[in-house]
């Protein structure tokens, strides 16, 4: 029973991170049709910003808001300068552009910060591990879950209870008709990149506090996790993204604790195998709309 609860707790913590990641991707996918391969690398740049801000002596309470602002700025800049130039709902072109952007971001990060891993600021209070009845959970995991819950709730309210959210959803479904209701697609794309920026900033802080160090090449792993969660959940569905994130989180936690030791290295591969099987059974993902009308 304890073992099961432990897996549940670990899965909850992992799942919150992955849900946020998938949500960040799906916001932009909905409005622009972009699956952003450079998402992880943008998060890495944000993490480097936090490292730099700490190294010039700023305390954490100042680093956090500045990092979030930086993340939003980066996300909106990239959206404006790189992706919106592609301009239309052309998922493949956008994906290729994001592929190129990923290369550029990694290469520039190698130039600026070097290949070596940099220590990420992490307050010791967050690294304490709570022990209750044989269950172990770190403060950071709790913070992770709490922050994710707050962001999910805020996004839910924004998307379902505000005109801005309605406009975003309407644009995601049918931008041309939304324009007739005085909704500017341009503004919606900006809004989605801003939301993604906030999410990216939060992830940058939480993820690297857990990992401890940043390298220019840390982004790929983040992108892959986000992609798996996104595809499990189904592209373009916010609800699906959250479900996909938690599904991946619980699956990983279960695999990590129950998989024979000599198969642990295959964790990510097994996660993808699950995705593949799921997609054969249900190509649209858990909560997504069907992309391919033919099947």
């Amino acid at each position: 029973m304890t073992g099961f609860l432990q897996v549940f707790l670990d899965g909850l913590s992992l799942g919150s991170s992955y849900s946020l990641l998938a949500l960040g991707l799906t916001m932009v996918f909905g409005v622009l049709g972009l699956v952003n391969f450079a998402f992880g690398d943008m998060i890495v740049w944000t993490a480097f910003l936090a490292v730099e801000l700490t190294s010039i002596g700023l305390p954490l309470p100042a680093v956090i808001p500045l990092t979030l602002v930086g993340s939003v700025a980066l996300s909106m800049f990239v959206g404006e300068v790189v992706f919106r130039r592609v301009g239309t709902q052309n998922p493949l072109s956008l994906l290729l552009v994001s592929f190129g952007l990923s290369l550029v971001l990694v290469a520039l990060a190698v130039q600026v910060f070097g290949e070596l891993a940099l220590m990420f600021p992490s307050p010791t209070a967050l690294n304490t591990v709570l022990q209750v009845d044989g269950l172990q959970i770190s403060m950071l995991s709790l913070v992770n879950v709490a922050v994710a819950a707050v962001i999910l709730a805020a996004l839910f309210v924004l998307l379902n209870r505000s005109r801005l959210g309605l406009a975003l959803r309407a644009t995601a479904e049918n931008a041309r008709t939304a324009r007739l209701m005085a909704v500017r697609p341009k503004s919606m794309v900006r809004l989605s990149f801003a939301i993604t920026g906030v999410i990216g900033g939060v992830i940058a802080l939480l993820w690297f506090m857990k990992v401890g160090t940043v390298t220019p090449r840390s982004g790929l792993d983040i992108t892959l996790k986000a992609f798996i969660a996104l595809v499990i959940g189904g592209l373009g569905s916010a609800r699906g993204a959250v479900a996909g994130g938690f599904a991946l989180g619980f699956a990983e936690a279960a695999l990590a604790s129950w998989l024979p030791v000599d198969l642990r290295g295959l964790q990510q591969a097994l996660a993808f195998v699950v995705v593949v099987i799921l997609l054969v059974l249900r190509p649209q993902g858990i909560g997504g709309r069907l992309l391919d009308v033919s099947r």
């Binding site: 309605l166 959803r169 309407a170 479904e173 049918n174 007739l180 005085a182």
Partner: peptide, 22 residues
């Protein structure tokens, strides 16, 4: 179209274009 909508021109488009996810 956004500006024209705010001025009081409203189009009920061909094929209705209801937002099915709303």
């Amino acid at each position: 179209p956004e500006a024209r909508a705010t001025m009081g021109i409203s189009l009920c488009p061909e094929g209705r274009q209801i937002f099915t996810s709303l």
